[in-house]
Nucleic acid binder design. Sequence first.
DNA 1: TTATTCGGAAATTAAAAACA
DNA 2: GTTTTTAATTTCCGAATAAT
Length: 292
Amino acid sequence: MTTAVKRACDACHRRKVKCDGLNPCRNCGSAQLACTYNAIPQKKGPKGSRAKVISELRENQRQTSLAAKIHNTMMGGGVDPQPMQTMQTISIRGTPGLLSMDVIKSCMDFYFDYMYPTTPILSREQLQQEARFMEQKQCMETYCLLSSLAAYTMIQPGGPLPAGDPGFNVPAICGANIIATQILIDETLRVRKGFDYIGKPSFSSLCTLYFLFAAHACLERNDRAWYFLREATTLIVTSGLHKEEAYTKLDSVEGSRRRRLFWMFFVSERCVELIALMKSIFSDSCRCKLVY
DNA sequence: TTATTCGGAAATTAAAAACA
DNA sequence: GTTTTTAATTTCCGAATAAT
């Protein structure tokens, strides 16, 4: 067995061939190459805190197990039902894999108690009625609205995280609200695949989009937030909510609620564009500093 | 047939953690 | 302080491919 040389020349290193370590080395001599040893070797060994990979793996496994437990706590202990089959054939209450009514109710209460002043787009009475109707008729649009609302409320400070089993106190777990929000976003998108929300978008579907946008923004997933905002803007135009006559047929309370949603989307979009513009100006000024 | 390339296994090295 | 563990880096084997 041959022993490795202390250092291979630049060409042998690049060619991944055995170097004899002389100058010029045998390979460079036969290939008529200039034999150099100019490359600066990197420092070997771990950088920073050790066991980074193993700790990352542990953290990933912890997150996966935590997500499964939180999923079970919120969804009645089930996993991965099919979107159409589940919603059309069985009731919401106590159905494994679907968001439990207890979670929905606590999220609705949290929204109307603490968040309504900044997001005044839903009516408490109407939503409670729709939630009851959803239980009887399995309305997927309402389910999506409520699960996206739950996603948005869970990520708020002091959000209504479910208590969990004895010995598994969900609200006390660091990052549980982030995991819960992601589960609820996934749940909304999963069920949303089961119906056509593009052809003639309902007010519920537009509210769902707003909560999806807001939940992603709270998670600092700005690209996704921007995606749902743009999707909502497109659906608002196709459903004519940017025209005043869209509101004249409605009663004043309902009309003003829908106008608020329109303006919230409008303002959010302007804000996002303004932030993007400021970022580009900031990066340009940095470039100027470098040039001068 | 010979030369060359390059994926990846094995060896080397160094820093962090564990131990006495 | 020494030893062990872990991770980053380097060397170069050997299979695949290209050139002659």
